[in-house]
Design a binder for these strands. Structure first.
Lengths: 211, 211
DNA sequence: GCAGCGGTCAACCTTTTGATCGATGGCCGC
DNA sequence: GCGGCCATCGATCAAAAGGTTGACCGCTGC
């Protein structure tokens, strides 16, 4: 028998860590060598231990995000593969994780066999994506982007908080004309024609974080 | 030694079920007698088995919600206690679960000891609330309510999807005047004066489900 | 050096939304 | 049966938001 695949579990929920450990313990050829309750610890432990695959959550209570940790881990030479295992998938998170160098992306409702299969695939550098995530990525590739500029996003966030154009202009030290100008660009980029529709569309696409 | 506390775990995530089972297995006096991957099965299993405490998730993939299952379980005579164990707490969910008769409400990031303590408390009928949930309930009691009527909520949901008054009136087979009328009532109840602010306020208070 | 883009602003006009007043009918509870 | 709440609709007016055009500046890249 060959070397076992060495795993690091990074999740802030003790219950989830125990669950992943329990599920993967029944699989032959897999070995959990460490657990990290924060993203920072995940980065440190991935460096200390010899690890083949990191199971990474995206949401941590505070501090570094899972995406940031993924980027930090994969940027090193001889780095382990990172398999993102998260509960809910917002579009922004998905994209960020993939850009950060994640090898796979699963949702926590995946059955154990699928999880184990994804771990083995990740160890070999092959990618496994949850169907919902795959569809999302396809949509993203198809839809040329609709990337909002920094300022446009900033304005849209304030719109989502319920501020009027006048309030936004004061908050950002702009004229109302500028606020409108940004919003018009946002509308055309998102293919909508009202502030509420823009917020809905941006939330659906994960451009705005759902609070 | 007295009788062990008999548990039913209801969660649609295999990983979480395994985690709860693993965490609680180390605790003396607790025994997991069944697992349910859906709310419907949870109701059925709670009736079949002799169960003291049900660990209930709120979000299931589809079909019956955790709150509905909680109501169904607790409505029977000699029913087990229901301890809600969920990932994220939206205000609407919290309230619904408490109204449905949940004995306790924990978040999944709770440490194992806290979880075990809550289970024992629930078995005796004592209530355990996660701090965040407790605060929320206090706020709710303090704020006289701002309960929206069924129709008002319906209109507000469509606003949140980005529809204009005209579109809403068509969707609900109403006149624009009626839509406006509902919205004015919503605004006064929420203490705001625009549709986007209403959506933001309602989302913050958990009246609208964050999608 | 110039084209392109992001960010800023102005003026003007149309549409939508919100504010106010009023009115009708149904249903529930005391 | 009457007051209160919900749901429905109409009309009117003022304010906010959206659409269009055009302009200027600063930065980046070819």
């Amino acid at each position: 028998m060959s070397e076992p695949i060495r795993l690091l579990i990074a999740d802030d929920h003790p219950v989830v860590r125990a669950g992943l450990r329990a599920v993967l313990a029944t699989e032959p050829g897999l070995e959990v060598v460490a657990e990290a309750p924060t993203a920072e610890e995940a980065v440190a432990l991935a460096a200390e231990h010899r690890v083949d695959v990191v199971l990474m959550d995206l949401q941590f209570g505070g501090g570094m995000s899972g995406s940031e940790a993924t980027a930090a881990i994969t940027s090193r030479p001889g780095a382990p593969r990172v398999l993102v295992v998260t509960t809910y998938d917002t579009d922004a998170d998905t994209l960020a994780a993939v850009e950060a160098g994640a090898t796979g992306y699963l949702l926590k409702d995946a059955p154990p066999e699928e999880l184990a299969a994804a771990v083995r695939a990740a160890a070999e550098g092959r990618t496994t994506l949850a169907p919902a995530v795959a569809n999302r990525l396809m949509d993203r590739v198809r839809t040329p982007a609709a990337a909002l500029s920094r300022r446009e996003t900033e304005v849209l966030e304030l719109v989502a908080e319920g501020l009027s154009n006048l309030q936004i202009s004061r908050r950002l030290h702009l004229s109302q004309a500028t606020v409108k100008s940004h919003l018009v660009h946002v509308y055309t980029k998102l293919g909508v024609d009202s502030r509420t529709a823009a917020v809905a569309a941006a939330t659906a696409r994960g451009i705005l974080r759902r609070r």
